[in-house]
Design a protein around this nucleic acid. Structure first.
Lengths: 119, 119
DNA sequence: CAAACGATTGAATATATGTTCACATGTAAT
DNA sequence: ATTACATGTGAACATATATTCAATCGTTTG
């Protein structure tokens, strides 16, 4: 005989309704993975610093490498990830490639994240 | 003789001023690491799903485990991380422990993240 | 065309981390 | 107290990934 307020454990008492409700109201797995991927990209010091830097000013690979103190190659690898998820865009100018934030949402996410720290 | 608009590369042409400006305006490394850690916690499907579920309703460990289809142990490990970063809080009710979001910032981050997907 | 140089890519390596299993802890009921 | 059960923890393992080095690509300039 099921009781209300119990959890979905291995016992006979399972609040199936509660779990089902959440199950139905949560975002679909595909959306969820895309969202997780976006947050993951922000969740790494190197990439986050790149994005924060680009939120201030357009920069080339060398500028960023100099700023972070790591290899241009490493920066390039990270920019590739950020590029493929549409978080940054780029333009060529001769031999250089200048990177900048792709849209405003990223900037908002960064801002909201910083606000979360001061609670 | 330095030129303007050049980047901080290995050549003699280095836009030190540009890099210095960004350097000074970017968040300090400590802030940056804390922020990165927050995003990293959101940037993993299991944890993100936990948080999205908790944004709908308070749940115990078993409910979440049942919802995600992974071990209670795994859930517990993830909740420990989320707890230590103040993203979730908990209350005991007998043998059960009910988890919920710690503050509204998390919910906002989730919402903003989802909005980012529809651009 | 050839040299120079910024950027990119692939392989390799070191490190981080998500999950599970086995066991420990805490609370409630008998 | 002893048992039952939800949760927490530590070790182990598999996997993911950030960085570097070496080589290549693209563009510009001699």
């Amino acid at each position: 005989m099921p009781e209300t307020g119990m959890c979905a454990c291995e016992t006979v008492f399972v609040d199936e309704e509660k779990v089902r409700t959440v199950q139905e109201n949560i975002s679909p797995d595909e959306t969820l993975h895309i969202l997780a991927n976006t947050f993951k990209l922000l969740g790494e010091p190197t990439r986050l610093k790149i994005l924060l830097a680009l939120s201030i000013e357009e920069l080339c690979v060398c500028d960023i490498a100099s700023l972070l103190g790591i290899t241009r190659s490493a920066i390039s690898h990270q920019l590739r990830l950020l590029k493929s998820s549409r978080l940054v865009k780029f333009r060529r100018a001769g031999k250089m490639v200048y990177y900048s934030l792709d849209d405003q949402h990223v900037k908002h996410l960064l801002k909201d994240g910083l606000e979360h720290l001061n609670d």
